[in-house]
């Protein structure tokens, strides 16, 4: 386990993160560490519990109603128009609900089959496949990445029901042990994406390499390093 000094140091970093005094780069480091290091999430949660009551000092303000409208549009809940009659129709919601269930099941089947396909193919191709499960903090598996070394590509499957703002993109990163994140490019936030990896990069992509997904401005990080929150991260493993 950690020496007392280093765990104190980590705790202090969490405190600084929650207070909001760290630089952009330092904030990304904490978010990565959060996904990988034991005890960080608990430490952070304790600092949130300690400092967040300060938010009560701020007088509440009613947001304008168009924020809710835009939010619904972004979540795809108003595709059929925003006529009040339809919105208030129980029948409409029943059918929407039913249709959503059917769609979700269909998607689940498709995704499961896709994943199974990869699992089934892997042994035949020899030890050319690596997999990573990118976990969201406390929520278990989110993105799955299957590295196909032979074809120098990674198949990335996003979590179900994942939605991001129109002016954002999800970007994939590989982080070899002790190195800075290397961009693997912007991935589709909702559908499986095939990411092509340069051969020289592929050499670095072994066990112990971390794959991560971050939220970035549309089109990807302008700096070449993650600038938005790390949504999920996980280590690559052989199968």
């Amino acid at each position: 386990m950690n020496t007392p000094a280093s765990s104190d140091d980590k705790d202090l970093r969490c405190a600084e993160y929650v207070l909001g005094v760290l630089s952009d780069e330092e904030r990304r480091e904490i978010e990565l560490a959060l996904q990988q290091e034991a005890g960080m999430a608990e430490s952070l949660a304790r600092w949130q519990a300690r400092l967040m009551p300060l938010n009560e000092d701020v007088a509440e303000m009613m947001p304008p109603s168009h924020v809710w409208d835009r939010l619904q549009a972004q979540l795809g809940w108003t595709r059929t128009g925003h006529r009040a009659g339809l919105w208030n129709s129980l029948l409409f919601w029943r059918w929407t609900g039913l249709a959503s269930v059917v769609a979700a099941c269909a998607l689940a089947i498709v995704l499961t089959r896709t994943v199974r396909l990869h699992e089934a193919e892997a042994p035949r191709a020899g030890a050319q496949y690596l997999v990573a499960t990118l976990e969201r903090q406390g929520a278990g598996a989110a993105w799955t990445a299957t590295v196909d070394a032979q074809h120098a590509q990674i198949v990335v499957v996003p979590p179900r029901d994942f939605v991001i703002a129109a002016h954002h993109s999800t970007q994939m990163w590989m982080i070899p042990p002790g190195s800075k994140p290397v961009s693997l490019g912007v991935i589709d936030p909702q559908r499986p994406t095939i990411v092509h990896v340069a051969r020289d990069r592929l050499q670095q992509l072994g066990a112990q390499t971390t794959l991560a997904v971050s939220l970035e401005p549309q089109g990807g990080s302008p700096t070449g390093q993650p600038t938005g929150p790390v949504l999920a991260a996980g280590r690559v493993e052989g199968i």
């Binding site: 999430a41 608990e42 949660a45 949130q48 519990a49 947001p63 924020v67 835009r70 939010l71 972004q74 979540l75 969201r136 903090q137 406390g138 929520a139 278990g140 979590p159 029901d161 994942f162 939605v163 991001i164 703002a165 954002h168």
Partner: peptide
């Protein structure tokens, strides 16, 4: 604000009432 609630919708499963 919009981003916050989109994130909340996406990541509600990560909410742990024991921790927060």
């Amino acid at each position: 604000l919009q981003d916050v609630y989109v994130t909340a919708w996406n990541q509600a499963a990560t909410f742990n009432p024991q921790l927060s």
